[in-house]
Design a protein around this nucleic acid. Sequence first.
DNA 1: CTAATGTCTCTAGTAACTAGAGCTTCAAGG
DNA 2: CCTTGAAGCTCTAGTTACTAGAGACATTAG
Lengths: 146, 146
Amino acid sequence: MLTIGKLGASAGVKVPTIRYYEQIGLLPEAERSAGNQRLYSQKALERLAFIRHARDLGFTLEAIRDLLSLSDQPDQPCAAADAIVIAQLAEVESRLARLGALKVELQRILTQCAGGKIANCRVIEALGDHSLCATDHRYPGLGATI
Amino acid sequence: MLTIGKLGASAGVKVPTIRYYEQIGLLPEAERSAGNQRLYSQKALERLAFIRHARDLGFTLEAIRDLLSLSDQPDQPCAAADAIVIAQLAEVESRLARLGALKVELQRILTQCAGGKIANCRVIEALGDHSLCATDHRYPGLGATI
DNA sequence: CTAATGTCTCTAGTAACTAGAGCTTCAAGG
DNA sequence: CCTTGAAGCTCTAGTTACTAGAGACATTAG
């Protein structure tokens, strides 16, 4: 049995994060010691490592929740798990495309700066006016993850 | 003078977002009509368009705050503005690299699935175990933007 | 004049944690 | 056995950049 600290160290997850995962039901409630401290089995470590790894791959906790519940049903077909991974791949590809456009645009903006004063700074001007942009990098709904 | 609705439509920003920007001090407090409704000048529209465009380019509101205060000081040298853009470019490049690795890994995971049952699903297995990965896609501190 | 739309303030919710306060438990050293 | 420091506990609130909703007031078109 592992304490929460050992568990976190083993899985590469911070202690408060583990408690948070338990709170939102991603991890089952841990057993407790006589002194009310959480105790974890090897199985719990595997589950946490799964979560950590999937987070590393950019999956949301919601997607991970689905993947975990699938992995608890070994006789189900793979298709559902595949679909989640495929969706994640599509998400990653769309972000890659968008970030690529951003990179180009930022580089372009930077090359225009002659290094003078703000008053005639092309950087500030380019930031203010999308029509000066070479690519259409616009995007409704900013703020996605990773 | 524009009402908040017209302003939002012109700049491509939703009305509650404009009020939010005012609340956090990114936009100055608007003039009010006799009936207490916000009224905006052309200058306010430009400022909001600047913010919107910079958000499109992935700048945080904090960075935008700095850029705006720079653009209010026309006699300052460009260097500070450039630095912010350079930092943003670096951020974008690092995310691009990371997302590229994620994409490769997700594709690799998908090719391993033979389409059977969850019990022997390589997808679930690969998600659970980083040592099965070809690339080191790990990253401390998930959850960045865009 | 009425109805529909727009605007107002305020609160609370989102994702995925992180930080801190104030307390208890545990393990090791003397 | 006692003490001390690390690790654990619960709870609340903060982060980013918004978004959603309630309930009331303003404006405008017909």
